[in-house]
Amino acid sequence: MHPVSSHPNTEALLATLSLATEPSVNGEDVFTAPSQYMPHGRVYGGQVMAQSLVAASNTVDPERPVHSLHGYFLRAGDATQPITFSVDRIHDGRSFSTRRTQAYQNGAPIFSMIASFQVEDPGLDHFIEMPSDIPDPETLPTVESVLGDVDHPVAKYWATQRPIDLRHVESPIYLTVNGSHVAHQAVWMRSLSALPDDPAFHRAALAYASDYTLLEPILRRHGVAWSTPGLKTASLDHAMWFHRFGRIDEWVLYVQESPSAQGGRGLTQGRIYSREGILLASVAQEGMIRVPGMEI
C-alpha cells in the first residue's frame, strides 16, 4: 500500500481526474470535471485524454482494464472552463468491452476517443528490451533546475506547477538544442508524490504524462527549441496500447523516436518501460508543427 499523495501538484492531478457523475443523456453516461490552469489558456491534451479514459473506465467492470485507446484532438479547449464527458457503451462481449468518449465544452466536442478493455488472459509474452546504458534519473537535472530562473509564465509553469517530474536523458530542448540533431530521445517520468493504488488511476495518469514530450524528437531532429519565436505545435491524434501494469509514482522511462515529418505534421512513436526494464505501454502521436521560416 502506497501512501496518499502529499505534493500540491499531485493533489491537483487527483482533483482533475476525479470526475463527477451527472444524469445520463440519451442512454449515455455523463461526467464532468474541471480543467487545470495553463499559462496559454488552452486545455492540456494529456489532461482531456486522461479524463476521457477515466470516464470510459467508470462504465466498465474493473476486471477489464483498458488495453488501448485512440483519440483525436478536435478543438483547442478553454482551460478556464469545466469539461463534460459523454460515454457511449458501444459493446460488451465475453472478453472485450468498447467505449466511445466525447469531451465537450459549450456544446462543442473538443476531443473524441474510442477505448477497448479486456479481461486479462494468459498468452504469449515478449517485448523489445529497454535501451541499455541509460543514466539513473537521480543523476539528471530537474525541469526546475533548468527553467527556474527563466522569467516567463510558461517556463514558470513547467518548472513548478506540473504534477510529473521529467528528467531528459539527453539535454532538454526548452531553450536550446544541444548535441546532435537526432530524431530520438528518452525521458524519465514520475509523479511528484505517491498516488492511490487504483490501477485504473495509474493507467489514466500514464496517459496524462504520455502527451508531455512526445513531439520533441521532431523538434530535436531539426534543431528547434520550445523557445523558438512563433513556434506552433498541437497534438492531432494519440494512440496508446497498455501492455502491462506499472505505477506512474515510480520512475518509468519514455523512449521516443520520430520516423517522419512532412506537410506541417510529424509522427512520433514511444515506448514506456518500468525502471526494471519491463515494457508497460506503447504510444504513437501525430502533431502539427509550424516553424516560421522553416519547412519540416
Rank of each mutant, 00 (worst) to 15 (best):
2 H>D: 12
3 P>A: 13
4 V>T: 15
6 S>Q: 06
7 H>E: 10
8 P>S: 05
16 T>F: 08
20 A>F: 00
20 A>H: 07
22 E>L: 14
29 D>Y: 00
29 D>P: 02
30 V>L: 03
31 F>Y: 15
32 T>V: 01
33 A>S: 06
34 P>M: 08
35 S>Q: 05
38 M>E: 10
38 M>F: 15
39 P>M: 07
41 G>A: 03
48 V>H: 10
51 Q>V: 02
52 S>V: 07
52 S>H: 11
52 S>R: 07
57 S>N: 08
59 T>V: 03
60 V>P: 04
63 E>N: 14
65 P>F: 14
65 P>A: 08
67 H>Q: 13
68 S>L: 02
70 H>W: 08
73 F>T: 00
75 R>Q: 11
80 T>V: 06
80 T>G: 11
81 Q>D: 14
82 P>E: 13
82 P>T: 13
84 T>C: 11
87 V>H: 07
91 H>N: 09
93 G>A: 05
94 R>Q: 12
95 S>M: 05
96 F>M: 10
96 F>Q: 10
96 F>T: 15
100 R>I: 04
101 T>E: 12
103 A>D: 12
104 Y>W: 10
112 S>W: 01
113 M>L: 12
113 M>G: 00
114 I>C: 00
115 A>H: 09
118 Q>C: 02
119 V>M: 04
126 H>T: 15
127 F>G: 02
127 F>E: 14
134 I>Q: 14
135 P>T: 09
136 D>Q: 12
136 D>Y: 02
140 L>T: 09
145 S>W: 01
148 G>L: 02
150 V>L: 04
151 D>C: 06
152 H>N: 14
154 V>D: 11
155 A>Q: 00
158 W>K: 01
158 W>P: 01
164 I>Q: 04
164 I>D: 06
168 H>I: 04
173 I>M: 01
176 T>N: 13
177 V>Y: 04
181 H>V: 03
182 V>L: 12
183 A>C: 09
183 A>P: 06
184 H>S: 13
190 R>F: 11
192 L>R: 15
193 S>T: 14
196 P>F: 07
196 P>S: 04
200 A>E: 10
206 L>W: 08
207 A>R: 09
212 Y>H: 10
212 Y>D: 03
215 L>E: 07
216 E>W: 09
217 P>Y: 15
219 L>C: 03
222 H>P: 04
222 H>Y: 13
224 V>N: 00
227 S>D: 11
230 G>D: 06
231 L>N: 05
235 S>H: 11
237 D>K: 04
237 D>V: 06
239 A>K: 03
247 R>Q: 06
247 R>H: 08
249 D>Q: 10
249 D>C: 03
252 V>E: 02
252 V>G: 01
252 V>Q: 07
254 Y>T: 05
255 V>W: 05
260 S>P: 00
262 Q>A: 13
267 L>N: 01
267 L>A: 03
270 G>K: 04
270 G>V: 10
272 I>L: 05
272 I>S: 00
275 R>P: 04
276 E>H: 14
282 S>W: 10
283 V>P: 01
289 I>Y: 11
290 R>K: 15
294 M>N: 10
295 E>S: 12
